[in-house]
């Protein structure tokens, strides 16, 4: 199977990437080249293999470490918003959101 320009547009929209037409064509070729080497992988028989999400699972069972419920984070709005593109009275500003 290979990716069409329509696929590229769908993915670019999902990823919110505005692509120029050259870029669009180039990516289409490059992704198809890449998925060429992926075909080998798809052929591998992996029935009854459990996916490995966290490499350290190989060392033994991993369990999520839990933190006590304590609110200790001070208000650092100023420092945290220092890099904000658009602010108004402590709020981040974005183009109007229509629901």
């Amino acid at each position: 199977m290979s990716l069409s320009l329509a696929d590229i547009d769908r993915l670019a929209h999902l990823a919110r990437l505005g692509l120029g037409s050259d870029e669009r064509n180039r990516l289409c070729t490059q992704l198809n080249d890449f998925f060429g080497i992926v075909e080998k992988m798809r052929a591998v028989d992996t029935s009854d293999i459990i996916p490995l999400a966290h490499p350290v699972e190989i060392m033994g069972d991993v369990a999520l470490r839990l933190r006590d419920d304590i609110a200790s984070e001070p208000n650092q709005r100023e420092a945290n918003q220092r890099n904000a593109p658009a602010l108004e009275s402590g709020l981040f500003l974005v183009p109007r959101v229509i629901e």
Partner: peptide, 11 residues
């Protein structure tokens, strides 16, 4: 959604 110069404020 109340108007911030025609924009939306995020809290």
């Amino acid at each position: 959604h109340e108007d911030f110069i025609g924009q939306t404020g995020i809290d």
